[in-house]
Amino acid sequence: MLKPKHFFLLPALLTLAAIILFPLVFTVRVSFSSWDVYQAGLDFIGGRNYARLFEDTRFWESLLRLSGMSLITVTLQYVLGFALALAVWKKMRGGRIFRVLFLVPMMTTPVVMSVIWRTVFHESLGPANDLLSMVGIGPVPWLSSAAGAFISVVIVEVWQWTPFMFLLLLAGLVSLPREPYLAAAIDGASPARTFWQVTFPLMAPISIGAIIIRLIEASKIMDTVYVMTSGGPGTATETPSYYIYIRGLRDFQVGYSAALSLAYLVLMIITLTIIAKVLMRFLVGKET
């Protein structure tokens, strides 16, 4: 007889394991093979793919680039999302319209919106440079310079995912208890002090959750790069997932890309775990 506690957990656990187990084991096996465009088979070449990976500067550079990119985008998303949530938190004229509008970008398909954004940033036919030239700026090499391409990707990521932060933080704000605010009001605390001493600490747990989830998703950044810059110019916007894609599906070096994937996966799990612990200690002041 199935015990209740197993009745709840096992269906999901087994389903997920069943779906994910074969691909995972298979990837590990392939990473020790020379599977490529010419020979599709599971031969065994030892750790050659892994040895190659250590000398692959393009991969390590892409990891470094990803760190910068996700740090910048997630920070911006958090700060902007929090500010927007605070702005429409209390009852206000037009508040609901703002709320709905602010949520919309996260509902849209990244590949599709990136196609639109690419036309926006088109340097001679798009509106971005056109509008800037009206105030005497430009033309900005949006997609043709390293910095420009990086910034364009950041802008699109911020546009797409700030709503996610906004949603989580606003839901948190709405459910905050009233008592601490009454106490702060009685103390005559300034709005700034109330924020730092009441709101921010109360919001810490939800902030951590939101940041971690966003970091996980941001680390996979792919669709935007795929459509807008193809990793270029040069390698200026090449992230690990895009690089793995180039190696695995464009060049069809399946064996090597499996090794890259696993290395990437291990690195990500370690990094994200550390970040989660550090955030916990920093924001909540306790260990979990």
């Binding site: 465009v37 010419y38 390293a146 270029g232 110019p233 040069g234 390698t235 464009r250 060049d251 069809f252």
Partner: peptide, 22 residues
């Protein structure tokens, strides 16, 4: 030849680095 994609993508990458001044 087999693997033309790898050869060309490697070449394009090198050319792009030169074009970008890297």
């Amino acid at each position: 030849v087999p693997g033309v994609g790898q050869f060309m993508s490697s070449m394009a990458n090198g050319v792009a680095e030169a074009l970008a001044g890297q």
